[in-house]
C-alpha cells in the first residue's frame, strides 16, 4: 500500500509572527519548520507504507519555502518528494488547494492512503483536507488518533477518531484520506544519513499543466493580515497566605463577573 503525505513549512513554533503595515505577514529571521501537526502524518506515512510494502511520497503545495518541509520529510525517511507550484493556485484558498492536491495524488497513482496533519497552522484551517478527499471522491476520516488495522487483501481500514465527546471507532473501504492527531505516534528525528541524503535530493516541481488540470476558479482570498487587538495589560499580583490569596482572587473574579 503506497501513501501520500501532504506537508508545508510554517514558522518555528516559538517565532514571533506579526502583520506589517501593508497587510503582509512576517516572522523576522526565525526559521521555518514542518507544520507541527504534519510530523505525526509523516511518521504515520513511513509506518503505513512500510507495513503495506509500498512507498511513501511527500507533497507540498506552494513556493520554495516549502522545500524545507519536504527535505525534512525525506530526512525522516519518506521515499520521494514533489512540490506543486503554479501562479494559478492560491494555497490559502482551500478549494484551489484541494483541486491541486487531488490532481497530484492522481498523477502519482496507485495510492490507497493520503495523510495530513490535523490542520495547517499558518492558514489556520483543515477544510482543504476534507475537500481533497471530496475532489478525489474518497472517504474522509478526520481527527484520527489511531489506525487500528489495515486489511490489504480486503482493502479495508479501521481507525479511532477523536471527537469532542469521546472516541469513535470507524471502519471504511480504501482508499481514504486521513487527518491525524498528535497522539497517533512518536515522530522520529531525522538520522544523520537521512539528512545528508535529503540535502542532495532534487525535488521536482509540478505546474498545473504537469498535473493536467486548469487553474481552479478563485473562491476566497486573504485580503490582509492584522495584529491581534492589544490585550488588557492590567496586572494585579495577589499576595498573602494561600487563604488570603484565595479570598482576594474570588472577590476579584466576582467583580469581573466571570464567576
Amino acid at each position: 500500500m503506497s501513501v501520500v503525505v501532504f506537508t508545508r513549512s510554517t514558522p518555528d513554533t516559538a517565532a514571533k509572527v506579526e502583520a506589517d503595515a501593508s497587510g503582509g505577514v512576517s516572522w523576522g529571521d526565525a526559521s521555518t519548520v514542518v507544520n507541527p501537526w504534519d510530523e505525526y502524518a509523516l511518521e504515520e506515512g513511513i509506518l503505513q507504507a512500510k507495513a503495506g510494502a509500498g512507498k511513501a511520497v511527500v507533497v507540498a503545495i506552494g513556493g520554495e519555502l516549502h522545500n524545507e518541509a519536504l527535505k525534512h520529510s525525506l530526512a525522516m525517511g519518506l521515499d520521494e518528494a514533489a512540490r506543486v507550484e503554479d501562479a494559478g493556485i492560491d494555497p490559502t484558498d482551500s478549494l484551489a488547494y484541494a483541486t491541486a492536491a487531488a490532481a497530484a495524488v492522481k498523477k502519482i497513482g496507485d495510492i490507497d492512503l493520503v495523510l495530513f496533519g490535523k490542520e495547517s497552522v499558518d492558514v489556520g484551517s483543515d477544510q482543504h483536507i476534507v475537500q481533497t478527499a471530496r475532489k478525489l471522491g474518497w472517504t474522509m476520516l478526520s481527527y484520527v488518533s489511531k489506525i487500528v488495522a489495515v486489511d490489504y487483501a480486503a482493502k479495508t481500514i479501521k481507525v479511532e477518531r477523536m471527537l469532542e465527546e469521546g472516541k469513535q471507532v470507524v471502519t471504511s473501504k480504501l482508499p481514504v484520506v486521513i487527518s491525524v492527531m498528535k497522539d497517533i505516534n512518536e515522530p522520529r528525528y531525522p538520522s544523520f544519513i537521512g539528512i545528508r541524503k535529503a540535502s542532495k535530493a532534487v525535488i521536482p516541481v509540478w505546474s498545473l499543466g504537469d498535473l493536467g488540470i486548469a487553474a481552479p476558479l478563485p473562491r476566497t482570498k486573504v485580503v490582509r493580515y492584522k495584529n491581534l487587538p492589544a490585550r488588557d495589560t492590567r496586572f494585579e499580583l495577589i499576595e498573602g497566605t494561600p487563604e488570603e490569596q484565595a479570598k482576594v482572587l474570588v472577590d476579584r473574579l466576582i467583580e469581573e463577573k466571570v464567576l
Binding site: 510554517t10 514558522p11 513554533t13 514571533k16 509572527v17 506579526e18 502583520a19 497587510g23 505577514v25 516572522w27 490559502t92 497552522v121 499558518d122 492558514v123 489556520g124 476566497t220 482570498k221 486573504v222 485580503v223 490582509r224 493580515y225 492584522k226 495584529n227 491581534l228
Partner: peptide
C-alpha cells in the same frame, strides 16, 4: 492565522 498569532481578513 499563524497559530493564532495574527488575524487574517479573508473574503
Amino acid at each position: 492565522g499563524y497559530a493564532g498569532k495574527v488575524l487574517s481578513e479573508t473574503v
